[in-house]
Computed example of a mutant assay.
Amino acid sequence: MFELFFSTYISSTIRFLFLLAPFFVVTMFLALTRGMPAPEKSFVIRRACIAAAIMGIILFFAGPLLFSAIGITLNSFRIGAGTLLFLTAISLVTSGTRNHATGLPDEDRDDIAVVPLAVPVMIGPATIGAILVYGAELKRASEVAGGLLGLVSSLLILAVLLRLSGYLEKVLGETGLNILSKISGLILSAMAAEIVLTGITGFIANI
């Protein structure tokens, strides 16, 4: 049981971390918090990560209930969510930004932690769909525990990267962060393809 928990935890942490597109989030955070004092930036990071964690945990458990209420199958949702995730991956690869987050740094808000940083920069439409799918796929208690801990761990890693965002900007520069965002997009496209193909395979098997 521990081996199943540990393997699910490791794979889920990696999956969720790439779903969050951390280097894109770092780029957006730098743009949104330019000129802020360090204590205020730390407060924004805490609020954003807590808000994203609450939403992510709700989505993680909401999949089966949502699918049952709407009357759609998991395989059908896999195809839809995977397609949306693939479009997001393409936007990351081609332009270095998520298609739903274009122009957000220009917004002037008193509180940017929840909107737009937590939603939709961290938890966007494609991420929502993928979390619903991954949560619904896990059946055993050890898998659910590993997946949930993986989600929380990925957000903690993202929080650390945001705390180090100034240092990362100095070392990597804007070009380096964009390149890493594009690499994340490539990995996301592979994840999206896997979700879609799994959905198609399961859909055909149930015909």
Rank of each mutant, 00 (worst) to 15 (best):
S142E: 15
F24A: 14
R47S: 04
V114I: 14
V121P: 04
I54T: 08
E143G: 15
A53P: 03
T83H: 04
A62C: 11
I70F: 06
A126E: 15
V171I: 10
M28T: 10
Y134E: 13
A190T: 03
A126M: 12
R47G: 03
G80Y: 02
E194H: 07
I204E: 11
G124Q: 09
I90M: 14
L168I: 03
V144D: 01
V115E: 12
S165F: 12
A69V: 07
D110N: 06
R140E: 12
R46V: 07
L104D: 10
M1E: 06
L172F: 09
A51P: 02
A193D: 08
L32E: 04
F67W: 05
I123G: 06
G56K: 02
I112V: 13
P64C: 13
A81K: 13
I183V: 14
I179P: 05
S154F: 02
G80H: 04
I79A: 08
L59H: 14
M191P: 07
L172R: 01
T198M: 09
P39L: 11
I72Y: 02
L177G: 00
S91Q: 13
E3Y: 00
E107D: 08
G173E: 07
T175N: 09
F2P: 05
L74R: 08
R34W: 13
A192Y: 02
V26P: 01
L66F: 13
A89S: 15
I79G: 09
I179D: 09
F86D: 10
S68Y: 10
P37H: 12
V119D: 06
V171S: 02
I179C: 08
A145N: 14
F5Y: 10
L19N: 04
F86Y: 11
T8V: 08
T94W: 10
F29D: 04
S42A: 14
P120L: 12
M55T: 14
A130K: 05
M191Y: 08
V133T: 15
I58S: 10
D111T: 01
F16R: 06
E107N: 07
G71K: 08
F86V: 06
Y9N: 00
A51R: 01
V160N: 05
D110V: 03
I187C: 09
F24D: 13
L84S: 15
A141I: 14
G185H: 04
P22V: 03
T73K: 03
G135F: 09
A193G: 14
I200A: 11
S7D: 00
F29T: 01
G82N: 12
G199L: 03
E3W: 00
G176F: 00
A53W: 06
T201R: 11
A62T: 14
A53T: 02
E137L: 13
P105L: 11
L177W: 00
F203V: 04
A38T: 03
A52I: 02
K182E: 05
F2A: 12
I128Q: 09
G176K: 01
P22K: 08
A118T: 05
L151W: 03
G185Q: 04
A51T: 07
A126G: 15
L32H: 01
A51H: 01
K41E: 08
A118Y: 03
L172M: 06
L92N: 09
I90A: 15
L138E: 00
N178I: 02
D110H: 06
K170P: 01
T13W: 05
I112E: 13
P22Q: 09
E174G: 15
L30D: 13
P37F: 12
